[in-house]
Each structure stands twice: as C-alpha cells, then as structure tokens.
Amino acid sequence: MRITIDPDGPGPIFERLAAGLRAAIVDGRIGFGERLPPARGLAGQVGVNVNTALRAYRLLRDEGFIDLHPGRGATVAKRLGHHTALAGAIHDLVEEAKLNGVDREALLALVRAAWR
C-alpha cells in the first residue's frame, strides 16, 4: 500500500494523510476488513510524526472508515463494493507516473500503445 501526501497542500498534515488513506479505501486499493499498518509504520512510510498518523487514524475512525482496536491495530470498516481493484491500479499508475516525471499526455500515449 502506497500512501502519499502533498507536503505543500492546504490544511494540516494529519488531514492530508487521512485524505490519502480515505482515497485508497474508496478506490479499492485498501479493501474491507484489511489491516492498516501500525501508526508508527505509517508515520515512517510517509515521513511524519507518529502522533500525526494517530490523529489521521482517529479522524477516519470518527468518519466510520476504519475501526481502531487497541493493541491490535486498525482495519477498514466500510464495504465499498462498487469500486474495483482496477480503480486502485489506475490510481497507483498515475501516482507512479507523477513520481517519475511522466506527464498526462505521455502516460495516456503509453496506455494507448499497451491497449493495442
């Protein structure tokens, strides 16, 4: 699971982190019942303080997206059946393209060529 946050985006970091996790749940990259990384691991992955990761988890819990189980971690609580793994793969592809400096038109050209 790759979660990214915009370091220069608007709002507090914990809200941006929660938004990244929320998007991954909604588009199917993280499925119902799936265990999320421990807050310490998530914090290390995205380069934030562990308290920031915990605050993002609490926000998602309050929104009903995840369940927090003391000592056992966090799991996805919402079943979003109309989203598919394809949506998650597309999201990952776009993020990978951005990380590698591939612009939108070049990515679309690559997809068109692969479709043939």
Rank of each mutant, 00 (worst) to 15 (best):
F14K: 15
F14L: 10
F14M: 14
E15D: 10
E15K: 06
E15V: 10
R16Y: 01
R16V: 06
R16W: 01
L17D: 13
A18L: 06
A18I: 06
A18Q: 07
A18W: 05
A18G: 02
A18P: 02
A19E: 13
G20L: 05
G20K: 09
G20T: 14
L21H: 03
R22D: 07
A23K: 13
A24S: 15
A24Y: 04
I25D: 10
D27V: 01
D27P: 01
D27L: 02
D27S: 03
G28H: 08
G28N: 12
G28W: 02
R29Y: 02
R29E: 13
F32M: 07
F32L: 07
F32C: 09
G33L: 08
E34Y: 03
E34G: 11
L36V: 07
L36K: 07
P37I: 10
P37R: 15
P38V: 10
A39Q: 09
A39L: 03
A39P: 09
R40M: 04
R40I: 11
G41T: 12
G41Y: 00
G41F: 00
L42G: 06
A43W: 01
G44P: 06
G44N: 13
Q45A: 15
Q45Y: 03
V46N: 11
G47D: 12
G47R: 14
V48L: 02
N49R: 08
N49W: 00
A53E: 07
A53M: 03
L54G: 10
L54Y: 04
L54E: 11
R55I: 00
R55N: 07
A56Y: 01
A56I: 05
A56R: 04
Y57G: 15
Y57P: 12
Y57N: 13
R58P: 02
R58W: 00
R58F: 00
R58A: 12
L59P: 02
L60Q: 15
R61N: 09
R61P: 03
D62L: 04
E63W: 10
G64E: 12
G64D: 11
G64R: 11
F65M: 14
F65H: 12
I66L: 06
I66K: 05
D67P: 01
L68K: 12
L68E: 13
L68M: 13
H69T: 15
P70S: 15
P70Y: 08
G71E: 14
G73H: 08
A74P: 11
A74Q: 11
T75D: 00
T75H: 02
T75K: 06
T75G: 00
T75N: 00
A77Q: 02
K78P: 00
K78M: 08
K78N: 02
R79E: 09
L80M: 11
L80Y: 03
G81D: 09
G81N: 04
G81V: 08
T84N: 05
L86Q: 14
A87I: 05
A87R: 08
A87V: 10
G88P: 01
G88W: 04
G88L: 05
I90D: 02
I90Y: 03
I90T: 09
H91G: 11
D92P: 00
D92L: 07
V94N: 10
E95R: 12
E95V: 12
A97S: 13
A97P: 11
K98I: 10
L99A: 15
L99P: 00
V102M: 02
D103H: 01
D103F: 01
D103Y: 00
R104A: 10
R104C: 04
E105Y: 02
E105T: 15
